[in-house]
Write a protein that binds this DNA or RNA. Sequence first.
DNA 1: TGTATCTGTCACATATTTGAGAAATATGTC
DNA 2: GACATATTTCTCAAATATGTGACAGATACA
Lengths: 192, 192
Amino acid sequence: MFALKFIKMKDTKQKIIDAAITIFNEDFSAPLEIVADGAEVTRRTLHRYFSDRQDLVKACQSVMQESCRKAMEAVYANFENPLERFENMLYAAIDCGVKFSFLHRLHNNEHHSHSQHNKDCKDYDRTFNKFKSTLDELKNAKLLDESLTMEWIEMLMTGIVTAAINSEKAGSVAKINIKKFAWHSLSKGILA
Amino acid sequence: MFALKFIKMKDTKQKIIDAAITIFNEDFSAPLEIVADGAEVTRRTLHRYFSDRQDLVKACQSVMQESCRKAMEAVYANFENPLERFENMLYAAIDCGVKFSFLHRLHNNEHHSHSQHNKDCKDYDRTFNKFKSTLDELKNAKLLDESLTMEWIEMLMTGIVTAAINSEKAGSVAKINIKKFAWHSLSKGILA
DNA sequence: TGTATCTGTCACATATTTGAGAAATATGTC
DNA sequence: GACATATTTCTCAAATATGTGACAGATACA
């Protein structure tokens, strides 16, 4: 009896957060009414779940954080081979979609002062370091093109994830091909 | 006498537009006060040059359009060899920076209905088609990896340009290396 | 120095966004 | 049907954003 109602509440709340992530990713200062419309609820309903804009943004951060953390940890746990792991991290990032790219942008824009004292930043780093340590393994195994830097490879990967997300949104590239193309371009672009 | 004053006006106007491009690229609905601050002028001064928000956005579009058009046409005129031309178009896009990526985003988001009746869209297409036709030449010369589609390559290029812009902004990759890395990753990623 | 032009400051009116209360309505459960 | 909870609708006040007028101060230049 309580269970079902709880599920329904969570449903609406989640729907609002999902809409917010989509909208804020494109237009960070978009009016809350736009978000409410996207979630197919009233602005009043939105305010029942989130006291104000900041509150909603925080919720979005948490969801993106959790989503990316889970995805990366699953890959980390399931693949021993660093190359296979790297490949599947790319796929995981593409699956996370805007949750991945938006989160990355939030923590890397100039207004945001990335600090280890901030819990969100620490969580972000912990998740992202899983990716970096895999890169280190590849480097130590002499599998990476030595003329490139780790920083560039990191940027390149997020750029390719962006390309994959945009392809999916635009519908210009068949969905079955997107991951294949992305890995093709990334692996050729950075492996020795 | 007139000349200098005219230059000064143009200077302020240009400064506002440049700031607006940077700000709107990150946050499309940012208050105009933020833009004014970025241009180091008062909101009042901003309104002396642009009657309202729409007016300013239009001016940004024109500037981005012109900047990209000039850059692409220069490359088109100066390089016969399609592969060299393609490489230098990448460099030109990186030089255009956010002017390139923001413009691309404006014409490819879901809210924008891209139409040939709109002059801006036509200009955009004409500029971007210079890039596409170069790609076609490469394809006909059997230089491209045949497993990829043109649409993916287009997306990949803008993704790599984004990576280059972010690298420059973050300062994590030495400026001298950025273009080199970008071309390395793009060429390896798509050439046969 | 005087003049023309541009910018800043302050004041103001208007428009939009935000957040919340109260009652009506809808939804799902027993 | 009775009940609890979720949502919408309507309402309103406060906060924020937008656009403009008037005038003073700065700047460049003859």
